[in-house]
Nucleic acid binder design. Structure first.
Lengths: 152, 152
DNA sequence: AGTCGTTAGTCAGAAGGACTGACTTCTATT
DNA sequence: AATAGAAGTCAGTCCTTCTGACTAACGACT
């Protein structure tokens, strides 16, 4: 199973560690690039908003639910993003209680930039790793996600 | 490169997302199992201590450095662990300024339990995924870590 | 032996990320 | 019209981590 049965986790090389390491490095690089590239106020937590927001905008509660946060936490995140011009928040015309959150142009610019930087990074990695191997890895990760999801 | 060029990250399936998803699920399961298995006071952050502590004990500053935290943060973590009986903190006999952090029996029990649970989980995943594929995935992840590390 | 730069760790304060509980306002259904 | 439930807000808390300022001890060099 594991490369070496050490009692000191450092050397154990668990699957968790193998996933965490690359993830950290990747996202550190990415957010550093974004900060340097003109979006310094975006922090990691804000990706929850960008990741889930719909083209036509989403409701606060919707965003909260799909990202697994409370409404309060999500309200805090989108409030911050509004203050910095990445989203616009308006009352939903169809429901006076609800708030609709939409990307502004700046918000869309950020998403585009993030996606581009991410693709760049991936391409670099792909070159380093070899295309075939990279594709296999991607496939493996996809399968892993599914496998874990329907564990017991 | 990416499965589909969507402007909405949710569907983009970036490498980051592929790593983050399984990692989250895995570690959620693991810590839930630990909490249920008699170690309810251990939180995710404490793994930094357990991951790096040496068999004979480690110095506070050493732990801080290798885990990439400040001394203050590490002091906070090991203080908590000491209060709950997982480590013993003593002045280093060789250096009056330094603190030596050592696992107690309870601490060792936790590490053993964590490692066992982790191995169990991995085995389940391996069974679901097929051994060959699982091993390839592991290898790929290892290579990925290295590739990212020496990017530019 | 005395001084002094360096290292180990502490104290205090702050900010970010997330939570719970209690509340208001609006909707929708009776 | 009345009221249960949903959408958000307000206030307060906890955890994680950081910075800055400090104390105590070590060790090298007069």
């Amino acid at each position: 199973m594991v490369t070496k049965a050490s009692s000191f986790p450092e050397q154990a090389g668990t699957l968790g560690a193998l996933l965490r390491g690359p993830y950290r490095q990747l996202s550190d690089r990415l957010y550093a690039k974004m900060a340097a590239g003109g979006f310094p106020e975006i922090r990691r937590s804000h990706s929850l908003v960008f990741r889930h927001i719909a083209p036509e905008g989403s409701r606060l509660t919707e965003l909260a639910e799909v990202s697994g946060l409370t409404k309060q936490s999500m309200a805090y995140l989108v409030g911050y993003l509004e203050k910095h011009g990445y989203v616009k928040i308006s009352t939903d015309p169809a429901d006076g209680r609800a708030k609709r959150v939409q990307l502004t142009n700046r918000g869309r610019a950020f998403v585009a930039s993030l996606l581009a930087a991410s693709a760049d990074l991936e391409n670099e990695v792909e070159r380093k790793l070899g295309s075939a191997r990279f594709k296999r890895l991607r496939g493996g990760l996809q399968a892993l996600g599914l496998a874990i999801a329907d564990l017991p």
